Computed example of a mutant assay.
Amino acid sequence: MATSLTQANVLSTQSVITESLPTENNTPQYFSVTIRQDSLTVTLDGPTIFILSASLIFAIQFLQPVTVAVLIGLATIVLFVHNDYQNFIKLGPGGTPSTFTGYVRINWLKLWALRDPFKPLPSDQAAQPASGILAKKPLPYRCGPRPRVVGIAPQRQVNQFGSKECYLALRRILENHGRVHTEEMGIGTSCFEKHGLGLFSRYPVNNTCQGEICHVHNSDHSLHLNLHSEDAKEVIEKGWGQRHPLTSRCFLFKMPVPRQFTMVYAPRTRDELKVVCQIIEAAGWWVIAKEIRLDVLGEV
């Protein structure tokens, strides 16, 4: 059943730009964050090596072998969890709070996560609309290797962030689209991410998350959106994106994102921005079952 967006969830263009830093003349200054993921490393200086060696000798002499093994195992686990938690925090704000509780929740969801994000979503005969839209104009192949993607919620690229110019142009396109089609569309803060600029349908056919069509990440310039299974297959096979890890089917509980949830890599050039806009149009087709073209004139 189609539902309308409340005024609280669809905001004005001025109020949704929460990822910018105000300058003296009140002009938003956008920034990009370098997303680091560090491997587990331990650096020991001379005094630390001496203390550890003495402690190990003491433990071997006065404790049972099983106890020593357990203590060494626990120390290794603590180091691993600490490093993994720091990497989770470095992904930045997203749909999951950047807290230890959020970290625990994400690791629980990892047990049910999709193992192969490049395996297309099985077709659904009962889906409406019945077919995708990208078959009318197939996508070109994306040049070069895929970027490295880590995390679940948040899910981020850690390289190939794309250009700042393309990111700003994409934001302007989405904002203009919301203004031109104000009776059907709205812009606001992403319902999925709780951060970032989102494009919404006021009367969705497939109610994704309050009608969200797509949202763009300020940190890595990638996007999340929902696509018909045929369109998602086209995006994945042509190298433009991949399925979200939580789009696997779980019979114990409902996953926090729809099965159609797809990540699209950050556009690096104006030509790639055109393709990304075509994919966003396909996301709109899935959500509202209506073809509405993005106005990209002047931006690409």
Score class of each variant (00 low, 15 high):
177 H>Q: 13
104 V>M: 13
260 Q>S: 15
254 K>I: 11
258 P>R: 01
151 G>M: 08
297 L>G: 04
251 F>R: 14
102 G>C: 01
270 R>F: 04
115 R>C: 06
178 G>Y: 02
222 S>N: 15
100 F>P: 10
186 G>D: 03
175 E>T: 12
164 K>L: 14
156 R>G: 03
5 L>D: 01
11 L>I: 06
40 L>M: 06
287 V>K: 00
115 R>G: 14
181 H>F: 04
239 G>R: 12
184 E>Q: 10
49 I>L: 06
63 L>M: 11
207 N>K: 14
277 C>P: 04
208 T>G: 03
76 T>A: 15
67 T>D: 05
204 P>T: 04
18 T>M: 08
276 V>W: 11
96 T>E: 06
177 H>A: 13
88 F>L: 09
28 P>A: 07
238 K>H: 12
292 I>E: 02
33 V>F: 03
32 S>V: 10
93 P>E: 11
273 L>C: 01
263 M>H: 01
97 P>R: 01
128 Q>E: 14
19 E>C: 08
160 Q>W: 10
4 S>A: 14
165 E>H: 13
134 L>C: 09
202 R>A: 02
272 E>V: 01
165 E>A: 08
103 Y>C: 07
211 G>P: 13
292 I>R: 12
195 H>Y: 13
53 S>M: 04
12 S>K: 13
289 A>I: 05
167 Y>K: 01
10 V>W: 04
119 K>C: 07
40 L>F: 04
188 G>V: 11
54 A>V: 07
87 N>T: 09
111 L>A: 11
132 G>S: 12
57 I>Q: 08
199 L>D: 06
134 L>Q: 05
33 V>I: 09
191 C>L: 11
7 Q>P: 05
273 L>Q: 00
177 H>P: 00
41 T>F: 00
77 I>D: 02
87 N>S: 11
76 T>C: 09
266 A>M: 14
129 P>R: 15
74 L>W: 04
17 I>G: 03
99 T>D: 05
111 L>Y: 14
2 A>M: 09
291 E>G: 02
133 I>G: 01
103 Y>T: 10
277 C>R: 03
233 K>P: 04
274 K>T: 08
189 T>W: 00
272 E>Y: 07
292 I>M: 10
206 N>Y: 02
